[in-house]
């Protein structure tokens, strides 16, 4: 469960409002997609949820705990994957996963089993012993995802996780996320791919210029827009400049 209440965030000393009075609840058990044009404030919102940025005002709760007064409790149940896989290049994939396992306190036995599974699915087993420096962009993304999946947290927060993944890896990831939500977990992710949002998400939020302009199931959005349009048309209509 993620709850944002009246969250605001501006850059450049208030000159640029990136997120404007955002109130949003991401219930557990539902795949929640976050859409919006470039620069709408998706990444900013996500970074506030995981504690990289602090909101100017408003509050954010994860699993019912405020992420500023109880940051460690929130971080312990959250795994985050950023849009750019900037990680320790000089470590090997295995060392990185071990580091993540250590700091999240994943027991060694579970770690080997989960890491083995994901390295296999993402076809990284052969390179896991090499420095991350030698990985391609997609491989880096997959090692960050593996780290997040290693933790098996209650809450996943993913910034454009499907961009740059090959079809097979994307398929495995979607399957895993479906399973995670079916078990009652929470998933919040941003995407630019309308088909993914349409077919994969149970609930969709659209943000535009920092403001939430639509939120609900696909059917609810259709009703709100008036006709039985595709999500793409709804999106284009709502975010018209």
């Amino acid at each position: 469960m993620i709850e944002l209440r009246n969250v605001c965030k501006s850059y450049n000393k208030g000159l640029l409002r990136a997120v404007d009075d955002l109130t949003l609840a991401v219930p557990p058990g539902e795949i929640f997609g976050f859409l919006g044009p470039n620069g709408a404030g998706k990444t900013t919102t996500i970074k506030m949820i995981v504690g990289i940025l602090a909101p100017d005002s408003g509050s954010i709760a994860i699993e019912g705990r405020d992420n500023r007064s109880e940051p460690l409790a929130c971080k312990a149940v959250t795994a985050f994957v950023p849009d750019e896989p900037e990680i320790y290049e000089r470590l090997t994939g295995l060392e990185y996963l071990n580091f993540i396992g250590d700091v999240y306190g994943v027991p060694a036995g579970l770690r080997a089993e989960r890491a083995g599974r994901w390295l296999d699915k993402f076809e990284l087993s052969a390179v896991a012993g090499d420095p991350i420096q030698t990985y391609s962009h997609g491989m880096r993304q997959k090692i960050v995802l593996s780290g997040a999946l290693l933790v098996e947290p209650k809450v996943f927060v993913l910034d454009e996780p499907l961009t740059g993944l090959d079809p097979r890896s994307a398929h495995h990831l979607k399957e895993a996320m479906r399973g995670h939500c079916d078990r009652g977990g929470t998933l919040f992710f941003s995407t630019h791919v309308m088909e993914v949002a349409e077919k994969f998400c149970d609930r969709i939020a659209i943000i535009h210029k920092g403001r939430l302009i639509a939120c609900g199931s696909l059917d609810e959005l259709r009703r709100q827009a008036g006709e039985s349009q595709s999500l793409e048309n709804i999106f284009l209509e709502l975010t018209e400049p």
Binding site: L94, N98, D102, G105, V106, A108, G116
Partner: peptide, 26 residues
């Protein structure tokens, strides 16, 4: 860079994850 590109066996994988460290040691 020199890379190995050799598939890790399940045993090798398990042994590389054998220890759980405290956070500050990690």
């Amino acid at each position: 860079m020199a890379v190995r590109r050799k598939k890790l066996s399940a045993a090798a994988l398990a042994s590389s994850f054998a220890s759980g460290r405290t956070a500050w040691r990690a």
